[in-house]
Amino acid sequence: MVETVANPGATASGTDAAKNHFAKAMEEALAGARALGEEAQSRAGEYREKLYQKKDGLSGEAKVRSDEYKDKAFGFANDGKSKACTALSSLGQLITENAGALDEKVGVKYGDYARNAAQSVQDTAKRLDEKSLDELGDDAIEFVRTSPALALGMAAAAGYLIGRVLK
């Protein structure tokens, strides 16, 4: 048998070399991890910036579209108001024209009722035409506040009539 005598200095020097090698490997790993972390933060910042730019662009576009649709809605509402005024005026004129026939067939008293009703319809059309949409909205809100039961009844009746017409 051959005996090997270990060199105590060689063993210590091998352990130190391994420790140094391990320490360098750890430093390189930490440096690589730091570099990856910095790159990840850099890319996250780029993506965040792109996201904010996209969000700002979409927000601006939504505001523009919202304003366009708001203008269209007001245009439709004004057209509807104008048509309602025209229809009410025409109805008042039709009632006035037929008041004479009521005088002859039923009596002057009923003709006068028809003329008063026609005048009321035409006055309503005139008041409606003179008011802006904002004033009409305020009037509607005030009416509902002062007479909620009547407003609810009128809404139900209007819904019923619209349902019958569309049926």
Score class of each variant (00 low, 15 high):
A44C: 06
A44D: 11
A44Q: 12
E46Y: 01
R48H: 08
R48G: 05
E49N: 09
E49Y: 08
L51Q: 11
Y52A: 14
Y52H: 12
K54F: 13
K55I: 15
G57V: 00
G57A: 15
L58E: 13
L58I: 11
L58T: 06
S59W: 05
S59V: 07
G60F: 02
A62V: 14
A62H: 09
V64F: 02
S66C: 02
D67R: 07
E68R: 09
Y69K: 09
D71Q: 12
K72N: 01
K72A: 05
A73G: 00
F74D: 09
F74E: 12
A77I: 03
N78R: 09
N78Q: 11
D79T: 00
K81L: 14
C85M: 04
T86N: 07
T86F: 02
A87D: 06
A87T: 10
L88E: 00
S89A: 09
S90T: 04
S90W: 02
G92D: 03
L94G: 03
T96Y: 00
T96A: 10
E97V: 04
N98R: 12
N98A: 08
A99P: 06
A99F: 10
A101G: 06
A101I: 13
A101R: 09
L102M: 11
D103A: 11
E104V: 12
G107F: 06
V108N: 04
V108D: 09
K109N: 13
Y110P: 00
G111K: 02
Y113M: 02
A114I: 05
R115G: 04
N116A: 14
A117W: 03
A117L: 13
Q122V: 07
D123R: 10
A125T: 03
A125Y: 00
K126Y: 03
R127D: 13
L128G: 05
D129I: 01
E130V: 06
K131T: 05
K131R: 04
L136F: 13
G137V: 10
G137K: 08
G137M: 08
D138G: 07
D138M: 08
D138F: 07
E142P: 00
F143W: 11
R145L: 11
S147M: 05
P148G: 08
L150E: 15
L150I: 07
L150D: 14
A151N: 02
A151I: 01
A151P: 00
L152P: 00
M154Y: 06
